[in-house]
Design a protein around this nucleic acid. Structure first.
Lengths: 133, 133
DNA sequence: GATAGACCTTCCCCTCACTGGAAGGTCAAG
DNA sequence: CTTGACCTTCCAGTGAGGGGAAGGTCTATC
């Protein structure tokens, strides 16, 4: 299997796969012509990476997860802890975005949005004045 | 006012202020000794930037907002549209994070998290199998 | 007047997780 | 033999600054 098929099979771009190899995450074998050769084990790990990245784990998290995955004797507690810390990150981000959303939404509601030049959004940004409800 | 006071007054780091100057957002005057000099107008714009960035506007958005702010004849509709598109971005991100959160949370619940090596989180990442409720 | 320390300057490299592109090698089909 | 798809490595860039070096400047103290 060349990198093109590996890309298709894993859902990662060829660029990403080469990048993961360059940082030592999933290192392919080589054919005689220098092309990368992937077997099922590689694809498995690449899919693992693709899914973990999709869940928001950093590449560094993925390195830990992969090594935990390859260690037959690891405790699941370690993995759970990593996942829980990711969950906290996600919750924090969601809350932050909700705060932004509320502020921005208030501003948008209060802006008539026509051709008149006075705009509560800019006024708020300029002065930091709270928009009255 | 030197950059240190400008930093304190605006809530931006000196590095950020220099960066904004380097990309032409807020360009300071200079004293005779080469130090940057800030007046109230500069501080005003820097605070504007700080608030807009805090609401998640990109630096490029900020460039637009600043020029809209400086244009006495602009229509508020333009600003409102920019803000609304930001709001959509935020909603999209929140939904994406909620999806991640749900998936991750399911996995965490199903993982006993003790010293046993079998771990549904890793199993899911490895196989892409849905965790049964 | 010397010196210490706080502040300022520019400059360059680092981040993160890749993406884009250039220059060139390899392979299968026609 | 050529075309086009595929592959290789390497270099540069992204966003939004952060870290730190090397050196200039200001103020206070001795």
């Amino acid at each position: 299997m060349n990198i093109g098929q590996a890309s298709e099979a894993s859902g990662l771009s060829a660029k990403a796969i080469r990048y993961y190899e360059s940082i030592g995450l999933v290192v392919a074998d080589r054919w005689g012509n220098g092309y990368r050769r992937y077997d099922d084990e590689h694809i498995h790990k690449l899919r693992f990476l693709q899914r973990a990245r999709g869940l928001g784990f950093s590449v560094d998290d993925c390195r830990s997860l992969l090594s935990l995955y390859e260690d037959r004797n690891r405790a699941s507690a370690e993995v759970k802890q990593l996942a829980q810390s990711r969950l906290s990150d996600i919750d924090r981000k969601i809350n932050e975005l909700r705060g932004m959303r509320a502020a921005l939404s208030d501003l948008i509601v209060s802006c008539h949005g026509d051709s008149r030049p006075d705009c509560p959004i800019l006024d708020d940004l300029a002065g930091g004045v709270m928009v009255p409800h």
